[in-house]
Simulated scan of single mutants.
Amino acid sequence: MKRGNYTAVSEFVFLGFSSFHEHRLTLFVVFLTLYLFTLAGNVLIMSIISLDRHLHTPMYFFLSTLSASETLYTLVIVPRMLASLAGLRRPISLAGCATQMFFFITLAINNCFLLTAMGYDRYVAICNPLRYTVIMSKRVCAQLVCGACSIGLAVAMTQVSAVFRLPFCATLVAHFFCDIRPVMKLSCIDITVNEILTLIISVLVILIPMVLVFMSYVLIISTILRIASAEGRRKAFATCASHLTVVIIHYGCASIAYFKPKSENTRDEDQLISVTYTVITPLLNPVVYTLRNKEVKDALRRAIGNKTSCLGCLAIWHT
């Protein structure tokens, strides 16, 4: 379609949570608290995995990478949202909006495929344990992580290029960050082609990884049920419980956000869903893996024990 004589738009303004204006301070405190817990939890996981040699395995390599990705993911979105709630409602340039959308898409897709890689790791560990160290070598793990990141970068470049080739006639984004659909709605022209592209990409990067993960778990569960020992079955299920919990929450929120019928969309509902996958879901990763994972809890106890011992030694030396 021809672009026509449209007024050039050079910046956007987020409406954010303007419909909850009277609760702005409460929302700021709640989201800031959640954000700080998310940062602290993910940094704690990365530190424990890095320092404890018992956790230098493929499973925890993927978990550490996921924690790093989740940290960057929240960093792209949450600080600006908090600034808006604090009353610092500044416009964002077109280039700034494109940059935020690019990193948001890249990291979101990276997280989806990292969870898929973690599912494959659990499948090999339980269904093919004798060849686990051969199949899940350091090289293969690095290739899986690079592959997840490369897919994220390629899809982000495609999606952002398609969105920012559109001419824009409005400047008020009915959202708290540069998400795909709220920005596309500001276009002066018909966006049907862009909506179809977004749907195709969503199917590829959400449904396909989700199906692969659940196929892995069908094979994992069938293998576990054939284990004769009840204790062996319990340990095998415990190994997968944390990952499966995170997978269900992550893919569940993403599916609701991007496959929800357009006719049902309302601004407040969309923002509530977006808060779930941008603020709450990244917090669940460290919470689930520290509260439900015995190896991580044991590593944390060892780290605390070593620190206590060191402090005790210093106290004795000074006396």
Rank of each mutant, 00 (worst) to 15 (best):
I45M: 09
I304V: 15
I273R: 04
E11T: 07
T171E: 13
V213I: 15
N285F: 08
I201V: 14
T319P: 10
L44A: 12
V140T: 15
S10E: 08
A254Y: 05
L291K: 12
D268L: 13
T192A: 01
V9P: 02
A154G: 03
I201Q: 06
A241D: 09
T308S: 15
R301P: 01
A8Q: 06
M59V: 14
A68E: 04
V163Q: 03
S229A: 09
G147Y: 01
Y73K: 03
R301M: 10
R89Y: 09
K185R: 14
H250E: 06
Y60V: 00
N110H: 09
A148L: 06
I77K: 00
K262I: 10
I304F: 09
Y60K: 06
R53E: 12
I77A: 06
M81E: 06
R301A: 12
S84D: 14
I49N: 04
N42C: 07
Y251R: 02
I273Y: 00
E231P: 08
D270S: 15
Y258E: 04
K294N: 15
T133K: 15
A174K: 05
S10N: 12
N306D: 07
A241L: 13
A125E: 11
F177E: 05
E231N: 11
V29L: 15
G87N: 07
F62T: 03
E295H: 14
V247D: 07
S137D: 04
V193K: 08
V76K: 01
Y60L: 02
T223V: 13
I201N: 02
N293K: 03
E295Q: 13
T57Q: 01
I196P: 04
I206W: 00
V43K: 09
G16A: 03
